[in-house]
Design a protein around this nucleic acid. Structure first.
Length: 416
RNA sequence: CGGGAGAUGUCAGAGUGGUCGAAUGUGCCGGAUUUGAAAUCCGGUGAGGGUUAUACCUCCGGGAGUUCGAAUCUCCCUCUCCCGGCCA
């Protein structure tokens, strides 16, 4: 959630920033209006309540002194009636504000490049040269079929489209990758955590998936529960509504979870292969930090994800997202894109974001700085998306006969 | 799923209609004592909103109700613990 007090006090500055992220000025004005209305209605209501409280106290005194209370009672009754109306007005103002405020994206950092979509993202650097092939490299779905690694049709049979089955070596490599990622993250100081794959609506609101993106989530029927779309949700919300001590920050967490996404709105995109599935594995990094710590941790997280790709000898590039391509909760994001020779392009394999206080404000995650409670900064990033890594290995490590060489670093993880 | 008990501040735990945002202990912070530490003593210490700052409002699991007044009474829900069933 954005800081409404900041918006109220620095309206022009905030508008300029929001425009970078594609929010129009009208929405902002509306929001500011709703906020000041709420404050006004609340003030009126509270004043009335104060009067009622005062009279009730007096009532107690009258009783003790055995004075007549009929007149006082009439007064309180009248006040009570008035309060009911005022309460309704205040509640409506509250709801109107929340509806708009919870749907507002985060403000982008000042350093975020201008731009409206992924074409305006800025490539920061390339890591490792793509290999040159003396044959036509195949796409992963062709390799999957040749090796019997992935069964798309049976995945569809078991569930529906965009589900797949991994078999034999592919299934083992999936598991090897998870272990490899967790081990590297642990080396870098992240604590390994195992969490529920189903979270309640409050948690989903805390990290920003709800209320705006309900259509992207798998909901459990008849329950207030959702399959998680990313481990960012449970890992960050581990500290939902908590006040941490400054000593324990930063908290660095890593965890493996499957992720479930409806992929609403991406009909027709990446329908072939394993790039975009309803269920996929991911190892996630999450950091809870003070505002002073968050920048350095952000860089460290990017380096770590890049390092994992390097250890797998997978060529990739580091891309800074422009304002228009930033996700809902992010103040700044760096994507890692891995080279896919079969598709002849770079594809996203990791996305690392600093949400600053945006999620912390929604999820009420604070720390004690002296006497004051201060919102933390929360950061998250993949290290890495497992299915897409498997795809990248297949395409980059393919041989002319369609076989796939196992990357050196994975051999111990696959009992080789 | 069936039976019983419970939900209060960091935690433990009192409070059963007004002077209770809440005793006491504990934890934490500051200070005294000490060469330093432990022990001891003194002081401070829940959250959210609101205000320049006070006032003031809200919160004792959540919601609805009774009452001039609710942590305290009534109803519903959720969760936790114990016993039993089922079960990886």
């Amino acid at each position: 959630m954005i800081d409404l007090k900041y918006l109220q006090k620095n309206f022009d500055e905030a508008s300029a920033k929001f425009i970078k992220k594609g929010v129009d000025a009208e929405t902002l004005e509306n929001l500011q209006e709703l906020f000041s209305t709420l404050k006004e209605k609340n003030a009126t209501l509270e004043e009335a309540k104060a009067e009622q409280n005062k009279m009730s106290k007096l009532f107690g005194e009258y009783m003790r002194e055995k004075k007549d209370v009929t007149e006082l009672k009439a007064q309180v009754d009248a006040k009570k009636e008035a309060i009911v109306g005022l309460q309704e007005v205040a509640r409506e103002a509250q709801e109107a504000l929340e509806k708009v405020a919870l749907a507002m994206p985060n403000l982008p950092d000042d350093a975020v490049p201008e731009g409206k979509d992924e074409d305006d993202n800025v490539e920061l650097r390339k890591v490792l040269e793509p290999r040159t092939f003396d044959f036509e490299p195949k796409e992963h779905w062709a390799l999957a079929e040749m090796n019997g690694w992935i069964e798309f049709d049976r995945g569809v049979k078991l569930a529906k489209s965009r589900f797949a089955v991994l078999r034999g070596q592919a299934a083992r490599m999936e598991r090897a990758l998870i272990n490899f990622f967790l081990d590297v993250n642990r080396e870098k100081g992240f604590e390994e955590v195992y969490v529920p794959f189903i979270n309640n609506a409050t948690m989903l609101q805390g990290t920003g998936q709800l209320p705006k993106f309900e259509d992207d989530l798998f909901k459990i029927e008849g329950e207030d529960l959702y399959l998680i779309p990313t481990a960012e949700v449970p890992l960050t919300n581990l500290y939902n509504d908590e006040i941490l001590t400054q000593k324990e920050l930063p908290i660095l967490l890593t965890g493996y979870t499957p992720c479930f996404r409806k992929e609403a709105g991406s009909a027709g995109r990446d329908t072939r292969g394993m790039i975009r599935q309803h269920q996929f594995d991911k190892v996630e990094m999450v950091a809870i930090a003070t505002p002073e710590q968050s920048e350095a941790i952000f860089k460290m997280m990017v380096e770590n994800a890049s390092d994992i790709l390097t250890r797998l000898e997978l060529p990739h590039r580091v891309v800074e997202l422009c304002g228009g391509d930033l996700g809902f909760s992010a103040a700044s994001t760096i994507d890692l894109e891995v080279w896919l020779p079969g598709q002849n392009k770079y594809r996203e394999i990791s996305s690392i974001s600093n949400t600053r206080e945006f999620q912390a404000r929604r999820a009420k995650i604070r720390y004690k700085d002296g006497k004051k409670n201060v919102l933390v900064n929360t950061l998250n990033g993949s290290a890495l998306a497992v299915g897409r890594t498997l795809v990248a290995i297949m395409e980059n490590y393919q041989n002319e006969d369609g076989t796939i060489t196992i990357p050196e670093v994975l051999k111990p993880y696959m009992g080789m």
